[in-house]
Design a protein around this nucleic acid. Structure first.
Lengths: 145, 145
DNA sequence: TTTACTGCAAACCCTTTGCAATTCG
DNA sequence: CGAATTGCAAAGGGTTTGCAGTAAA
């Protein structure tokens, strides 16, 4: 687990390196995800910002643009499932996959070394240069059964 | 691999059992997927029907409704990735996961027993009643490297 | 000063819905 | 006949874009 400040620093570095501008809005969006212990949609992030920072007059379009940018530079990742559209999380956590309750939407993270190894092997066998993977197990969680 | 006619028969059975009506449109949509060797979006299916069956005056809404129905009764499945929205395939093939080329969009199917077993175990450990899973490995295929 | 970035609103795409007409049972 | 299904067009939801104004370098 990486510290929030370090990630913010990294954002500053990336922005500078690309000759872009550092703005409060991008920082706020990243910060929300750094402190969320859940996967959030663009709209949820927007609403959170509206609530927690009523002074910052951010627009939903800016949230989308920031999310796109942050995902592009790999500071955050997204998964898409169901009808909720994309859900984002910060990319500072260790790699993991997702168990998703199709009833209440709850997401549990997990990680299995053997599965990871086998994925690499499968990609190699098919002559794919693997860049990432995404694995979701869908089911009904204990409290929804 | 199951024969197309058998699946069509199954559709007839399901429809009758549910007290619904058997329509040519649902059959056409299912048939397109049974003969596709690729994963298709709703719009691709719609366009295919328009081309191959110019006489059938089907509407895009009907395609969506048919796809929803067919997925509900488990004759087809869908995966969502990238910006293309849901892609459908018939459910008569044996279970498999997907290797996806992020450059050309090519999809390679694979299956690994050990991964399947481990998924079941992980779900059990987290007290999830597993209903399905979806696993995609993203990378660059041989011909795109 | 220059250029990227922003907020707003309109546009956009894909999907769903309301409805009158149609078809199946 | 009665109910499910259809095609059409309009509505919907989520996301993107054009633009004039704003703010970072």
């Amino acid at each position: 687990m990486v510290k929030s400040e370090e990630v913010i620093e990294e954002l500053k570095k990336i922005v500078k390196q690309k000759g872009l501008k550092y703005t409060e809005q991008r920082e706020i969006v990243l910060n929300v995800l750094l402190h969320a212990d859940d996967h959030l949609t663009a709209e949820e992030i927007y609403n959170l910002i509206k609530t927690k920072r009523p002074d910052s007059n951010i627009g939903i379009a800016t949230v989308y643009r920031a999310l796109g940018f942050l995902e592009e530079v790999n500071l955050i990742t997204s998964i898409a499932f169901g009808a909720d559209g994309k859900k984002y999380e910060s990319n500072t956590k260790d790699h993991h996959d997702h168990l998703i309750c199709t009833n209440c939407g709850k997401i549990v993270e997990f990680m299995d070394d053997e599965i990871e190894k086998r994925q690499d092997r499968i990609a190699k066998k098919n002559k794919f240069r693997i860049t990432s993977h995404s694995m979701q197990i869908y089911g009904i969680c204990a409290s929804c059964q």
